[in-house]
Amino acid sequence: MYNWDFLPVLSESGLLLAGFRNTLILTATALTGGLAVGLLLALARLSHRRLLSLPAGIVIEVFRTTPPLVQLFWFYFGLPIILSVEMTPFLAAALTFTIQSGAFFAEIFRAGIVSIEKGQWEAARVIGMTHSQLMRRIILPQAVKRMFPSMMERSIELMKTTTLVATVSYADLLYEANELAQKTFRPLEVYTVVALIYFISITFISFLAARLEGRFARSGEMTR
């Protein structure tokens, strides 16, 4: 029978904590960027001008149907060759996950915007609002509430996807775990602890999301 010994892991918990901090930083960066990119892509895709809707559609489909790890390698190893710039693991990861999650967010935004009843659009038009006014004042505020559950799901997916950066040596939680496992010769304890850290934090976020959804649902402004 194997003797579990968490002591070597716990005595190096500072390393894991630093890794977790980097995971959160990367997730927050990609989430902020991804939401902005997603909204722009969605608006472009819904545009009547083909010059806007076609490229947006292509970006969305390409980033949704190729594996994120291939994208990350492309941005980390490939892009610097075209642009002849130095690429850091963080920059490559932030760029990849911003665009990748942006493509998924775009589809959520689009579904939300399309779900708003025609009457809302017509009424806003009749009052004399411009397209950007009616989008900002009427459509988006309603759409965002409906999109909330899918948005939260996607954000959690994003946090889990950030583990891929360990493969290009960005010091996130999983990367530090790999280091620690080699250093302590305790892979079982290290990977179990890391899995638990992810499990607890993601379960906590899901719990918060569910409570917020409940509040939205009570105020009758969200359809599920």
Binding site: N178, Y191, A195, T203
Partner: peptide, 23 residues
């Protein structure tokens, strides 16, 4: 369901690869 949905799949693969053979 909760455990496998709330942990990253890459962590799961590495766990099975490096940790499971010890158990």
């Amino acid at each position: 369901v909760e455990f496998f949905r709330n942990t990253p799949v890459l962590v799961q693969i590495l766990w099975f690869y490096y940790a499971l053979p010890i158990l």
